[in-house]
Design a protein around this nucleic acid. Structure first.
Length: 859
RNA sequence: GCUCAGGUGGUGGAACUGGUAGACACGCAGGUCUCAGAAGCCUGUGCUUAACCGCAUGGGGGUUCGAGUCCCCCCCUGAGCACCA
């Protein structure tokens, strides 16, 4: 049912059609459909207080176009949206205002939802999810229990980034230049008890399976680099005077072992205490203290000079028995490899710098072509100064040295990863509580007898004040474990989350079988399963909820499982995933890890979650700078919708340039696409508001009509191809070309106009449905199936042949398809623009590409 | 420093596997309509030239009948990573 305005009244017709679609349920996905499925997913937003940023509708418009297009092509399309709503900003707001973060989050979601709805996206709102909803995070907690059960979650004392201002621990990737990413506050190192997920157990598969996904190469390369696989050897050095201890190092260059002139331990390495001699003890202690205060960045980039201290101890090189001094230096990091290296200053730049500074010997063991390359030399070559191996190419020497040491039990080929285990806990309130309690060893043993299958192969424990505690999972039936209300959202100053202050929540009597609890301040209830327990006060990081949300969309109301097996089988995973490149590593790597664990459990049918991935680019401000409040260059989608309408905004976002490119916003450009829509309106609706008189039910049949129809079919083909290839900007250009032709045509068959509207509909759905209805459509344009182009109409009898002389364009001519080289040559010779350039010259060569080009090479 | 992505008119950008560089749009100029304006419509618009010619895709070289596209060197911009053994 159309509106009645005579002119293009977008303020009236856009809300009208949004309501009509909603009422008709056109965006719903059907879990019981026999149609082929297409699951298209946006990275769901964090509902910030600032409201929608113009970058959100950019990606969402792209996916909406595809969703509408795929529906028209007969697919059962799943196109959902939800809210990644745990996170620091809501917590900081709560700290400031004292209101519960849930209420702030609810307000933000309401605002986001209003904005997203006003853009006319065809989301299936019945599948809306919210990561902070207990019905959702119940399954986040359940997945954690599966990780726990499989021994993939453990507890460790870790030096972590502590931000006194935020009163929270930050992950490495949240710290930038020694300051917090959020808020830009100074941070320091602190040891805290943390939950850690063993993502390194999946390093090999996370790397190998990248070959199976259709992702941008740059993203794959970034993940590869992050996982950072390197092959080498783990070698064992004996320690002089310490027969019980030995020093393990990882090296990628076992071939340079004869050039090892000293060893370096990370200052935190446990052996430092063992081997430091009494004379060196004071110096080493001072050095360790200084190093511990430094960030990795200060130990590396900011330190222009290498620093270090001699431990007084010596190690014995396993290949030649030579004694080499052992140093401690902070350019070696405890978190990589074994936290110790063999230093080969002749063939490693860092070692060379260090050796120069501390006057340690440098021995060349690799000679390149010339043999006297400047040191450090890191190129390839053959071994020298390496008795028994001299003359061997370095690659072969790697294998030989490794094999020889392995034969003596002091080395083995080994693979090392840069990837570290995932620090998974936060000392915050606004996150999922861990479904874990801490109990005594005796209680754990008692429960283990009954619930053994839910426990990890090795118990997870920690000790405090000489007492050991065992991690006991809540039974899955007791989930969700919800957050208690708290008095204050300020973290306890001790590094624990605000939850630690809620004594009646933390210290409980727990029925270890049912998961029921009562505060420990009350008497122990009767029954043998009640144990004294202290709840885990850490919460999960924001990543947790976003690691699996794409699965919940398949079956969002299921109360028996994270999604039903039929839904998981039918939908599998997203066929296309669109979001910013800033998630190229962390989110996408963490989600792949969880997915693989779920795959191993038999929950999901495929080993990879996201088959095809696309990154949209960033929209910059008018000034070409990143949009930010402080620069005052932020564009608000609401104001564009008010001034030009949603269809114009959608179209303009897509016309700006390639979706993947970074591009500046230009407020003038929006007028261009708005004019285009007005033109389409004018060509179809007369001044009286009725269908334009130039539209006729029958085919006018004249030359102009034939040409228009040919152009329509060319447009059908190009728009379809461009949508599939996500080249929306050129699809719009083509539609503009068609609209210009439509304007010039004296009479137009209604069918031609209607098919054109179908092409426009995914991009500008409101105006398209309005015009469709006024041109006699009875159902929504969305329900019409996508037009097919007729290849016969695109066949041409004549093609333009370009004449070149010595590669330069000189003229062109329409010639029949199938023109021979001889005919084309004859035509070129008599062409008025071409002839002067060939007359009187010898023809050396002719290149003829039929239907395209004729190049005459003359001397 | 390393890795990746880019550099095309006054502007955003187009050019599928090497084949007329500048589609489409913005802006600008002139015209038309109008009492006047807005909107619409028509024409023009890389540089140079009266025109032909010539010159043009960051700079330089190369391959090719032919290069924005392929190869080599250099410059610039943006993003990411950072002594990774």
């Amino acid at each position: 049912m159309a509106t009645t305005s005579a002119d293009y009244n977008f303020r009236e017709l856009e809300p009208h059609w949004q309501a009509a679609w909603e009422a008709a349920g056109l965006s719903r996905a059907d879990n019981a459909s026999s149609k082929p499925k297409y699951y298209i997913l946006d990275m769901f937003p964090y509902p910030s207080g600032a409201g929608l940023h113009i970058g959100h509708p950019e990606g969402y418009t792209a996916t909406d176009i595809l969703a509408r297009y795929k529906r028209a092509r007969g697919f059962n399309v799943l196109h959902p949206i939800g809210w990644d709503a745990f996170g620091l900003p809501a917590e900081q707001h709560a700290v400031k205002t004292g209101t519960h973060p849930a209420s702030n989050t609810r307000n933000n979601i309401t605002n986001f939802k209003r904005q997203i709805r006003s853009l006319g996206f065809s989301y299936d709102w019945e599948r809306e999810i919210d990561t902070t909803d207990p019905r959702y995070f119940r399954w986040t907690q359940w997945i954690f229990l599966q990780l726990f059960k499989r021994g993939l979650a453990y507890v460790d004392e870790r030096p972590v980034w502590w931000c006194p201002e935020l009163r929270t621990v930050l992950a490495n990737e949240e710290v930038i230049d020694g300051r917090s990413e959020v808020g830009n506050f100074p941070v320091e190192r602190r040891n805290l008890r943390q939950w850690v997920l063993r993502i390194t157990a999946y390093a090999e598969r996370l790397l190998a399976d990248l070959k199976d996904v259709d992702w941008p190469d740059s993203t794959k390369r970034m993940q590869e680099a992050w996982i950072g696989r390197s092959e080498g050897a783990e070698l064992t050095f004996a320690l002089d005077g310490h027969p019980d201890a030995s020093l393990k190092v990882f090296t990628t260059r076992p071939d340079t072992l004869f050039g090892c002139t000293y060893m370096v331990l990370a200052p935190e390495h446990p052996l430092v205490d063992v081997i430091t001699t009494p004379e060196q003890r004071a110096a080493v202690a001072a050095y360790r203290k200084a190093a511990s205060a430094k960030s990795d960045l200060e130990r590396t980039d900011l330190a222009k000079d290498k620093s270090g201290v001699f431990t007084g101890a010596f190690a014995i090189n396993p290949i030649n028995g030579r004694k080499v001094p052992v140093w401690a230096a902070d350019y070696v990091l405890m978190g990589y490899g074994t936290g110790a290296i063999m230093a080969v200053p002749a063939h490693d730049e860092r070692d060379h710098e260090f050796a120069t500074r501390f006057e340690l010997p440098v021995i060349r063991v690799i000679a390149g072509e010339k043999g006297d390359e400047k040191l450090p030399y890191t190129g390839e070559g053959r071994l020298v100064n390496s008795p028994g191996y001299d003359g061997l190419p370095w690659e072969e020497a790697k294998r030989r040295v490794t094999a020889d040491l392995a034969g003596r039990g002091v080395g083995r080929a080994s693979v090392n990863y840069k990837l570290r285990d995932w620090l998974f806990s936060r000392q915050r309130y606004w996150g999922e509580p861990f479904p874990i309690v801490w109990v005594t060893p005796e209680d754990y043993a008692r429960v283990a007898a009954r619930r053994g299958s839910e426990l990890p192969p090795q118990p997870v424990t920690y000790s405090e004040n000489g007492q050991v505690f065992y991690a006991l999972p809540l039974p899955a039936s007791a989930l969700p474990l919800v957050l208690p209300d708290v008095q204050s959202y300020l973290p306890s100053g001790t590094g624990e989350s605000p939850l630690a202050n809620e004594r009646d929540w933390v210290d409980v009597w727990l029925d270890a079988v049912t998961g029921k609890s009562v505060p420990a301040s009350q008497p122990r209830p009767a029954g043998e399963d009640w144990v004294r327990a202290r709840r885990e006060t850490n919460t999960m990081p924001q990543w947790a909820g976003s690691c699996w949300y794409y699965l919940r969309f398949l079956d969002p109301r299921n109360e028996a499982a994270l999604a039903g097996p039929e839904a998981l089988r039918y939908w599998a995973g997203p066929d296309l995933y669109v979001g910013g490149a800033e998630h190229a590593v962390l989110h996408l790597l963490y989600a792949r890890f969880w997915h693989k664990v779920l795959f191993d459990l038999g929950v999901v049918p495929e080993p990879e979650p996201f088959r095809r991935l696309f990154h949209q680019g960033i929209i910059l401000g008018e000034d070409g700078e990143k949009m930010s409040k402080s620069r005052g260059n932020v564009v608000n989608p609401d104001s564009i919708i008010q001034s030009h309408g949603t269809d114009t905004l959608r179209l303009y976002l897509m016309f700006l340039g390639p979706l993947e490119a970074m591009k500046p916003w230009n407020p003038r450009g929006i007028e261009g696409v708005h004019r285009f829509l007005q033109k389409v309106w004018r060509e179809m609706i007369g001044e009286d508001g009725k269908m334009s008189a130039k539209l006729s039910p029958s085919d006018p049949g004249d030359a102009a009509a034939i040409e228009l129809k040919r152009l329509l079919h060319e447009t059908i083909r190009k728009v379809g191809d461009d949508i599939e290839g996500m080249r929306f900007n050129t699809a719009i250009s083509q539609m503009m070309i068609f609209a210009n032709a439509l304007q010039k045509a004296p009479r137009v068959e209604i069918t031609v106009a209607r098919q054109f509207l179908q092409l426009l509909a995914p991009f500008a759905p409101h105006i398209s449905d309005e015009l469709w209805s006024r041109l006699g459509g009875t159902e929504s344009i969305q329900q019409a199936s996508w037009p097919a182009h007729d290849p016969k109409l695109l066949e041409k009898s004549e093609v333009k042949v370009v004449f070149q002389v010595n590669g330069k364009f000189r003229g062109d001519l329409l010639m029949p398809v199938g023109t021979t080289e001889t005919e084309a040559l004859a035509a070129a010779r008599t062409h008025p623009k071409v002839a002067p350039h060939v007359e009187g010259k010898a023809l050396a060569r002719v290149i003829y590409v039929p239907g395209k080009i004729l190049n005459l090479v003359v001397s």
